[in-house]
Amino acid sequence: MMRHAFKLFHVWVWGSTLLLLAATGTVIGFLLVRGWAGIGRELVFGETPVLAALMLQRPVFDGLFPAMVGTLALVLLSVGMALPVGLATGIYLAEYATGRLYSLLSLFFDILAGMPSIVVGLFGFSITIFLHHRFSGKIYPCLFISALSLAVLVLPYLIRTTQAALEAIPADLRLIGPSLGATRFQNIFHVLVPHSLKSILSGILLAIGRCAEDTAVIMLTGVVVSAGIPKSIWGNFEALPFYIYYISAQYADADELTRGYGAAIILLLLCAFLFGIAFWLQRRLSQRWFERV
């Protein structure tokens, strides 16, 4: 009886794992099988010559190029905004904050990390409408607002990775600087931060991935169906994940649907690439510590 029960255990653990892998494999395989044939120059640039499109001389219609540029701009802007604040907060949390303050701040960042992205989007949207009413009719939902909202969304990721990286530094290394007469400030900037750069970098990559894939925030704060390449941060823009969402519900013909599959594959590859590098960095890092010990 017992023996059967434990055989069942192995069936369960292997069965669960295989089920999960099969489900994930089906999702990815389905996309690749249906969409792979559509991957090509035309998917990205439509009928516009590649060079003219890249030089922004001619607008691209019926291609993913504007959405890809939109996503790129969005990612750069939002990570650019969140990075200084996130790093500084992470350093403060790891190196300065203590006791009550430490746990209070941690609680706030946990709440922020758990917040649904649509709530952040609603916040960004309503702030914009509020400002539009009260201050200037020239404030609309736009690329800048989307980037700002996304920055809020990824802030806790940056804080957490920075903090965790700094706190993981062994005490002996932490004390070398001060023992040689370095100030706390010098120690942070010349020893601790450089030392945790790789794991901070992996946090940044995860934040980029989060910015690139999030749809709920941008659909309330300025993404549109068609806008072309963003020319300023105060205008509307297109983005890959929103494009995928839009096409999935309302493709007009087989061509559009093919582009939807193509967009999904591109976004998937982009995220896989970012996450892959991030994990590779983290693994190399943990190995290095492991060898040190």
Binding site: V27, I28, I244, L267, C271, F275
Partner: peptide, 24 residues
């Protein structure tokens, strides 16, 4: 290896799940 696979799975965009959900 499996641990690595699971970590990579966290990177699959939500909208991709939705997209495949609709058509599959």
């Amino acid at each position: 290896f499996l641990h690595g696979v699971v970590r990579m799975m966290t990177g699959i965009p939500t909208v991709v799940y939705g997209f495949v959900g609709i058509f599959l």
